[in-house]
Design a protein around this nucleic acid. Structure first.
Lengths: 166, 166
DNA sequence: CTTGGAATGTCAACAAGGCTGACATAAAAT
DNA sequence: ATTTTATGTCAGCCTTGTTGACATTCCAAG
């Protein structure tokens, strides 16, 4: 509550290598938990984590273009295309040619796609909700704050999005 | 900032689906940042993230057995073995046959291995330190608390380790 | 002592999903 | 008319996960 700011003589015990190492390992183990539940669901669909990411962000930004998705996901178009191809073939993603610019392909989830997205995100939210509830609102604020500071700046733009930059 | 405790009628606004979604995306983008710096270093060694993880935990638990490492990393022994083979061939990891049980292989970093580990972990700590400093000690406590709650329970044993469970 | 099972680790082969490079097409911009 | 942009596709490579088959070692039951 007191000194989180920039005083000169504050403790800084939270910046020891030991504390940092714990943070690093916490990220490693937590991320495993974070992906575990969706991974189990994806297995039964014969999809992978790459499909999950695509479905998540198409749901989040309906009508987004392929190029847009590329920069958000940080993969090559060939890699994304392989995933999109199967999602389209399986009827989870619908492609609409752009009206203003007909080179662009706008991506939308179909009903089936929305169903899968909901199943995946509900599993993930369930774990996140349990963790949030256990840690409490102040811890959650700190959690988000540290994660935001850890992102590459360009990625911070895609996160939280638009009107609200925290 | 007031009620973090366990009152019945508290706000719970931090548990909305929207808040959870932000936490999910924060994990995704932050993990990318988290691995970005080591990944760049590893590239110049022609190693991958799997090598980093192995080197990290061998450094953390010197003399650990292959089996031990297996359960910590959560991969198959065949997958780990491939990584270990190259690290051993390149002289970064030393294998000592167990004295009591000669089936066991105890793993240690060589001088060269320690050097690589330091280079990788220093890069990772640098980012973590910047994030910690920016967020402040209370945020860091919250960050760790949420991450711990997000882990699978078995993994929580390997984390923070031994005498100190936070 | 021997023998069979359990634990540990290695080798081989396959799949997912990254990557680069080359090339095609359509549409927009100049 | 030419160039640039957005997208898609094919081919081939690498890392890192998987399973299956096998070798070695230890231990315990006969």
């Amino acid at each position: 509550m007191a000194d989180s700011g920039g005083h000169s003589g504050e403790s800084l015990l939270f910046l020891t290598d030991e504390q940092l190492r714990k943070g690093i390992e916490a990220m490693f183990f937590a991320y495993r938990g974070f992906t575990a539940d969706p991974d189990r669901i994806l297995e039964s669909y014969a999809y992978g984590r790459a499909h999950h990411r695509a479905v998540h962000f198409i749901n989040r930004f309906p009508g987004t273009t392929v190029n847009n998705l590329l920069t958000i996901l940080g993969v090559t178009k060939q890699s994304l295309n392989r995933v999109l191809r199967t999602l389209i073939a399986d009827g989870l993603v619908e492609v609409r040619v752009g009206t203003r610019d007909r080179r662009e392909r706008h991506l939308h989830l179909t009903e089936a796609g929305i169903t899968l997205e909901r199943e995946l995100s509900e599993a993930q939210r369930r774990r996140m909700r349990a963790a949030y509830r256990q840690a409490g609102p102040e811890a959650v604020a700190g959690f988000r704050h540290v994660l935001e500071a850890m992102m590459d700046p360009e990625m911070r733009r895609h996160y939280g999005d638009l009107k609200e930059q925290v």
